[in-house]
Each structure stands twice: as C-alpha cells, then as structure tokens.
C-alpha cells in the first residue's frame, strides 16, 4: 500500500495552496449556478441580447478567476510538504 497520510497541520505556503485548491472546487459550482439558474427562472428575460451579455460576462469572469487561481497554485505537486 503506497498511500500516505496527509499531514494534519501545514506551514503558511502549503496552507495557502490548499485553500486555493478549495476555491477551485467552489468555482464550477458558482459558474454552474450563474449559467443554469437565471435562464431557467426567467427565460423571457435571458433569451436574447441580455442573456448573451450575462453569459459572456459570467463566463469571462470564471475563466479569469480560474487562470488566476491556477497560476497561484503553481507547479510542482509537493502540496503535502511542510515548509514551516
């Protein structure tokens, strides 16, 4: 068995990295809510130009946040290492 126990407490950088990882879990849920719910609730309102702008804006925002998060998480898979 090559499983490793996850550390219980982390140093500042690793802690930050793990919280950024948490943020990437929230992001798709938020975007799904933005993209799915408004058009379903108010189809009249979101079917035309307003809907197009709404979807374009929320998607662009999501992409930007994803890029920022992924950039901040950084390379290297050593997220379990304690840097303190």
């Amino acid at each position: 068995m090559r499983a490793r126990m996850r550390r219980l407490f982390l140093g500042r950088d690793a802690y930050r990295k793990r919280r950024l990882g948490d943020a990437t879990r929230v992001l798709p849920v938020l975007f799904a809510l933005l993209a799915v719910l408004p058009p379903m609730w108010l189809p009249q309102y979101f079917s035309y130009a307003r809907g197009a702008v709404w979807l374009a804006a929320s998607w662009a925002l999501t992409i930007a946040v994803t890029a920022a998060l992924h950039g901040a998480i950084g390379g290297g898979g050593a997220e379990d290492e304690d840097d303190a």
Binding site: R25, L27, P28, F31, Y48, G51, L55, T62, T66
Partner: peptide
C-alpha cells in the same frame, strides 16, 4: 437562439473545476 451555447457552457463548468475533478 442561445440554446446553442449550452454545448459549450457544460465543458466551461467542468473545466472551471479542472484542478480537482
């Protein structure tokens, strides 16, 4: 109309969670 966008919004949502999913 905008329904065609659903085909790209789905992958958009999935890829927003690329880092964990």
């Amino acid at each position: 109309g905008l329904e065609f966008l659903t085909i790209y919004l789905g992958p958009g949502i999935v890829f927003a969670g690329a880092w964990w999913g």
